[in-house]
Amino acid sequence: MKPRPPVMRQKRRYILARIVPPGSCPDQKQAYLSVLDAATALWGDAVVGLAQPAVVFCDEQYLIVRCRRGSEDAIATALATVTAVGDRAVALRTMAVSGTIHALKRRMRQIRPVSEPEECVIGERYFTMYRYPRQKVDLVEKSIKTQKLLFLTETDLEER
C-alpha cells in the first residue's frame, strides 16, 4: 500500500516522562493501560479518542507517550494523575515534549545506583537498599504479600 504523503499524515507529539521509583514499569502494556485509564478518567472518551495516546517506549527509568499534536497538554496533565502501574505505586514526571522520539532520547540521562543493592533490617523487617546520587536511599521491603517502600536519605539511615 502506498503511504500517505507527508502533508496528509497526522501530526504527532511525543512526551517524555521519568518513572519514579526507577524500575516500577516492567511492562509497556501495563504502562499504556495506566496512562489510558488516567486520561480517560480525567478527560473522558471523546478527548482521549481524538488524542490517541500510546506508549511507544518504556524502560526502567523513562517512558515516551505519543499523542496527536494539540493534545499534548491534556495528556501531560493526565500523566500527572497516574498513581500506579499494575499494582505498583509510581509517579510519572513529565520532562519534555518533542516532535521526534530521537530528540527525547537525547534528553534521557540514566540515573545509576551509586552502589550494588544492599540488605538492611529496620525493626523486624528486611529491606533491599538502593543508593542513588544526592544521598537518596530507596528501601524495598522483602515480602511475599506487599512490597512496602521507604524513601530516605543517608542522614536518615545514620540516625536509625
Partner: peptide, 8 residues
C-alpha cells in the same frame, strides 16, 4: 507517610 522530610 513513607518518605522522610529530608528526602521530600
Amino acid at each position: 507517610g513513607n518518605s522522610s522530610a529530608g528526602r521530600m
